[in-house]
Computed example of a mutant assay.
Amino acid sequence: MALLRPLAFLAFVAVTVVAFYFSEHTLVRRGYVVGFVAVLVVASATGVAMFPAVTMHKFADTVDEESTYHEFRIADESGTEIEYDQRASAPVIGTRHASLALATVEEYDDEKRLEIAAFLLEQAIEHRTDVESGPSFSERVRYPRHMHVEGWSATELEDVGEFDRLVIYERTVRYDDDAGSIENRSERKLLEIDPDEERIEGPAA
């Protein structure tokens, strides 16, 4: 699969270039459209995400009976925590946040951990100022994001003091096979990183 995906991508690009070059021929145009639709049908029938049908097939990703992921939270001086608003660090959104949190716990050394925590904390502080001052004109007219992200509200931030440190949790969700609903959740704190004091605590430290 590691080789198949890049080969499929290169094949699609090559076929598209050829089809574009010979686009004046009706047979080529029709053949390209038929082939493209066929790829979509195969992706839908098999549930295999393959470029160019990566996000076009009708099947959602399968979910295991138990799912574990990592998430960032921000804590204030008193220990009050709030889930990290992914809009604060625009280049790192969605599943990339979970991947970065996992890498911070399992792969990076303390120097890299402090660097990541300092960046995310600084971005969070700036974003908090924007949230509390209300949406700007540019935000109101900006094209909507391609994914839904639950963000902070000014009301929610009233109960949180000045951001002090970054916290990483491991969360486990267990699903009911029959109903497909969440059966139970559990979480444990893995790391607490204070970049100002260069302090890293927790079982994963």
Rank of each mutant, 00 (worst) to 15 (best):
M1P: 07
A2E: 14
L3K: 12
L4H: 07
L7W: 05
F9R: 10
F9D: 10
A11G: 15
V15Q: 06
V17S: 10
A19I: 03
A19D: 07
H25S: 04
V28T: 09
R30M: 05
G31C: 01
V34N: 12
V34L: 14
G35L: 08
V39I: 10
L40W: 13
S44L: 13
T46F: 14
T46D: 09
V48C: 13
M50W: 10
K58D: 02
A60N: 12
A60V: 07
D61E: 03
V63T: 08
Y69C: 04
A75P: 09
D76A: 07
E77K: 15
E77N: 12
G79F: 09
T80Q: 13
E81D: 01
I82K: 08
Y84H: 02
D85Q: 01
R87V: 06
G94W: 03
L100K: 02
A101K: 02
D110S: 15
K112N: 05
E115R: 12
A117V: 01
A118R: 07
A118V: 02
F119W: 12
H127E: 08
H127K: 10
H127A: 04
D130Y: 03
Y143R: 13
P144A: 01
H148V: 06
H148W: 15
E150M: 03
S153C: 07
A154Q: 12
T155K: 11
E158H: 02
E162N: 02
F163I: 08
L166K: 11
I168V: 15
R171L: 09
T172D: 03
V173K: 11
Y175T: 09
D176N: 07
S181E: 11
I182L: 06
E183H: 09
N184L: 12
R185G: 00
K189G: 01
E192I: 06
P195T: 02
D196F: 07
R199W: 11
E201N: 12
A204I: 01
